[in-house]
């Protein structure tokens, strides 16, 4: 099982290697033992043995922009990962509303923490002078609303995330 990430023209494969008490990762076949710590506002620290790097990351849909070792890079999470994501999401009964095209947020109909039913309106967007209402695809609790009224977003950006509280026995 591998996960693919594209940097420019190159596709890199990340594969978890399960050991007795920890997980290591193979990147393009090379084993790394790393730890990622979130420091808030997009800043992270990646530790690998005695080496520590500070990284700035910004996630926009399937594209991640990051600053590492003085380089500004763009990494695309590839289709294979998309598939795995969907599978994982299905397993967790989650829901992610992504932008079908770039545009601007006209109205936000819900709040984080609010319970919604399948089909409830979540957010109104405008693209190419056309307004569209995006509705919940599952019943759940709104867990993320990254944009507010007036914000611009790009195609593929996550506009809302829904979660079904995990039920007893699932965990």
């Amino acid at each position: 099982m591998g996960y693919e990430f594209r940097v420019g023209e190159q596709v890199h494969c990340v594969e978890p290697v399960y050991c007795q008490d920890k997980i290591e990762f193979k990147v393009d076949g090379e084993v790394h033992r790393v730890d990622l710590e979130s420091l808030g506002s997009g800043e992270y620290r990646l530790t690998s043995g005695c080496q520590s790097r500070s990284i700035l990351m910004h996630r926009d849909g399937d594209r991640v922009f990051l600053h590492i070792d003085g380089f500004d890079l763009e990494i695309d999470c590839e289709n294979r990962l998309d598939r795995l994501r969907k599978e994982a999401r299905a397993a967790h009964h989650g829901g992610e509303i992504t932008a079908p095209m770039p545009g601007v947020v006209v109205a936000v109909r819900v709040e984080v923490g609010e319970s919604v039913s399948d089909g409830d309106p979540l957010i109104v967007i405008e693209s190419m002078k056309l307004q569209t209402e995006l509705a919940a695809t599952i019943a759940g609790v709104v867990s993320e609303l990254p944009f507010v009224e007036g914000d611009n977003f790009e195609k593929g950006a996550v506009l809302a995330r829904l979660e079904v509280p995990e039920q007893d026995g699932q965990k």
Binding site: F5, V7, H12, M57, L66, I68, D69, L73, C77
Partner: peptide
């Protein structure tokens, strides 16, 4: 490699 791991 570090970048890809951080993203993952």
């Amino acid at each position: 490699h570090a970048a890809v791991l951080a993203v993952a």
